[in-house]
Amino acid sequence: MAQATDITTGTTASWDGEGRVKVVGILCNWCSYAGADGAGTARLRQPFDFRIVRVPCTGRIDPLHILKAFEKGADGVLVSGCHPGDCHYAEGNYYARRKLELLERMLPQLGFEAERFKYTWVSASEAQRWQQVVTEFIKGVEKLGPREGRAL
């Protein structure tokens, strides 16, 4: 059984078995991936039920990539990129924002609980924030548990 510190309570809680929930993170190379890396380097505790896909920019992400992750069995998907205005490619995340927002609004229509998808912005220097974002997100997914008998 995996152990991790619950940063909100400060206790060491057990994550109920690796793979109880599968969460996919799609992170941009320049900000959020570096941020997550920074969190690791700083030895900030993070949940393990998390698989990261690194993309050059959130602008590269098609809403279908996220749906595909769900279709292949992800219980939650977290997308994170550079803060608006800070995109390495100047404007990629502005395009991404529109697409991701539409997806976020459409998912409940397809029978997804709102907690299963989140898009957010974490910069390379925000290791602390990253830890908080990912922990909170995964706790939300944990609460819902694995998706079973689902349409997509």
Binding site: D62, P63, L64, L67, K68, E71, K99, L102, L103, M106, L110, R150, A151, L152
Partner: peptide, 23 residues
Amino acid sequence: LVGQKVNAQENLMFQMVHMFHVA
């Protein structure tokens, strides 16, 4: 992106391709 099998899951995935393309 979409498998060849015809079942609710793949079919819905296919429909999402349509939906997000015409958004």
